[in-house]
Design a protein around this nucleic acid. Structure first.
Length: 536
DNA sequence: CAGTGAGCGAGCTTCCGCTTGACTT
């Protein structure tokens, strides 16, 4: 019987793994980092090849004391912190402060299942000091940036301000979006819509006049200048066309059928869960994380701070059989779908955020969690199932119709309408995505049967004036998305970034929108002028 | 001599990423 001490990062994880390992293994948690640079002073010896002066944190001291005591009666030590940069550093720090006299093994696993754990137990390795160096270098750079630049802001702008590798580029994004909005010149344009007198009713919008495409919002640049080869319909032109078309039929000129097919999105990772929590449930990123933490500790979902979208093999099998049972064989994707993380510098120490095994539907756990946790669990459940389901398929029909407006001179007007009919819901049976504005053209609309040459009666033609609008301000979900794309921040910090820039008075929230303060403008300007590379 | 004020020095602010749990609103 072994008598081993196993150290992981999270207490909840320790509890689960303890069950798999059984007697002879004492599983404990480091509860995150145990050592850090003290907050007072730079604590980096700039003269001496940037040697960091790490110290045990207050909690680290307590933890090390406890672990040291346990180590006395152990004859083996397993360092089972996460297999990523920070996890490797935690393992190295544990070595340094525990100074174990017994054999030490580095053990890593990416899913918490019995087979994965016993596999990991048999394939231990040594600490990878290259990765440890990378983690310490990251820490040193962040300290140097933060503690050397912030004081400049105290002197030049305002006391208590801060700068950093993550927060400063974040502020820059918000400020630059605001500048685009201020520089934006609105342009006006009109469009025409025909409402049919058919059953079902449909609307068609004017596309071109005498063969020239008419301008829509997207044809204007930020200065209000319209693209070449596109004509802007003015108010008087629009009313002329409406009266010129009055009571005229439209003739069908073309009917085009295109197959429609859409695949589900990958299972959740931290950033996408925060985005969907914001979009679908209207809750903040930090609220999402609080709820997810509750679900994780209750054993309902896998780890919630991850940049990976992979499902463990047994989870994949379980999900696929759940789909067959709940929806039927035809809703299952023919091949297992394997997703890849698109995140820059993804570390992939954990798997995707998904319901734990054995799979339990939201109804089953409803009485074990509170209402808010349940609503988050529901979207995790649905998204996980959907990720292994079949494509949604259907047909998109695009119809062009024309008529001649009796103006002076007469003008040929071409209208267009389109509608998508979903024949097979596929993954949508389980999970409906929030529509991206950019894909709004695939709206589902019912059209009557039409063929080329048909005359379609029109109930009325109407003209509408529009102004181009500036790019939207960031919201919490869109900022998280942008930061992730740029590789700024980590799953454990996305939610905290907004807190930092709010607390420092760099931004404030106007409803969902994130608006920069004058301080933010001043600081971004100063940093762009003097520390260009630091805000890039 | 008491009260005032200029001048000086010391101490404070700050980073990011890994984990909870103890706070308040």
């Amino acid at each position: 019987m072994p008598n081993a001490l196993v150290i992981v990062e999270s207490p909840a994880k320790a509890k689960t793994i303890s069950k798999f390992l059984g007697d002879g293994f004492d599983v404990r948690a480091s509860v995150g980092h145990i050592a850090d640079l003290p907050s007072k002073g730079l604590s980096v010896d700039v003269e001496n090849s940037f040697k960091p002066n790490y110290e045990l944190t207050e909690r680290g001291e307590k933890i090390i004391k406890e672990l040291k005591a346990l180590l006395k009666s152990a004859d083996e030590l397993y360092l089972a912190t996460d297999e990523d940069r920070e996890g490797e550093a935690i393992a190295a720090h544990l070595m340094e402060y525990l100074k174990p006299k017994v054999p030490v093994k580095r053990m890593v696993f990416h899913e918490i299942t019995k087979t994965a754990i016993s596999e990991a137990l048999e394939h231990t390795r040594d600490i990878d000091y290259k990765l440890v160096d990378a983690a310490e270098a990251r820490r040193i750079l962040d300290r140097l940036y933060g503690y050397e630049v912030s004081p400049i802001l105290w002197r030049k702008v305002n006391r208590g301000l801060s700068a950093g590798r993550v927060q400063s580029p974040s502020i820059r994004l918000v400020v630059e979006r605001e500048e685009e909005r201020m520089a934006h010149v609105a342009a006006g344009y009109w469009d025409l819509e025909a409402t049919s007198a058919t059953t079902p009713i449909f609307t068609a919008s004017l596309q071109s006049v005498d063969g020239s495409r008419i301008a829509m919002g997207k044809d204007f640049d930020s200065l209000g200048i319209v693209k070449e080869g596109v004509v802007v319909v003015t108010e008087s032109r629009a009313t002329d066309l409406v009266s010129g078309l009055a009571a005229k039929d439209l003739t069908v000129r073309s009917v085009e059928d295109r197959p429609y097919r859409k695949s589900p999105r990958a299972p959740f990772m931290t950033s996408t869960l925060q985005q969907e929590g914001g979009n679908k449930l209207r809750i903040t990123a930090s609220e999402v994380m609080r709820l997810a933490q509750g679900l994780y500790e209750g054993g309902f979902i896998t780890y919630m701070r991850t940049d990976n979208v992979i499902l463990a093999d047994d989870a994949l099998t379980a999900v696929r059989s759940e789909i067959t049972g709940a929806f039927g064989q035809e809703f299952l994707s023919s091949e297992p779908r394997i997703y890849k993380s698109k995140v820059k510098n993804a570390q992939e120490a954990h798997e995707a955020i998904r319901p734990t095994l054995p799979l339990r539907s939201p109804e089953v756990i409803a009485s074990d969690v509170n209402a808010r946790e349940l609503s988050l669990y529901k979207i995790i459940w649905q998204r996980t199932l959907a990720s292994q389901m079949a494509d949604a398929t259907g047909v998109t029909v695009t119809i062009k119709l024309g008529a001649t407006a009796s103006c002076e001179p007469p003008a040929d007007c071409e209208f267009s309408t389109s509608g998508t009919t979903i024949n097979f819901a596929g993954y949508r049976q389980a999970y409906q995505e929030v529509e991206d504005e950019s894909e709004s053209d695939e709206k589902e609309a019912l059209l009557p049967a039409m063929k080329v040459g048909d005359n379609i009666q029109v109930d009325k033609y109407s003209a509408d004036g529009h102004m181009t609008s500036p790019p939207a301000r960031y919201t919490e979900p869109t900022l998280v998305k942008k930061l992730e794309e740029l590789g700024i921040g980590r799953p454990s910090t996305y939610a905290a970034i907004l807190g930092t820039i709010l607390n420092r008075g760099y931004v404030w929230k106007k409803g969902q929108a994130i608006v920069p303060s004058w301080t933010a403008f001043a600081v971004v300007r100063l940093m762009k002028n003097h520390f260009t590379e630091l805000v890039d």
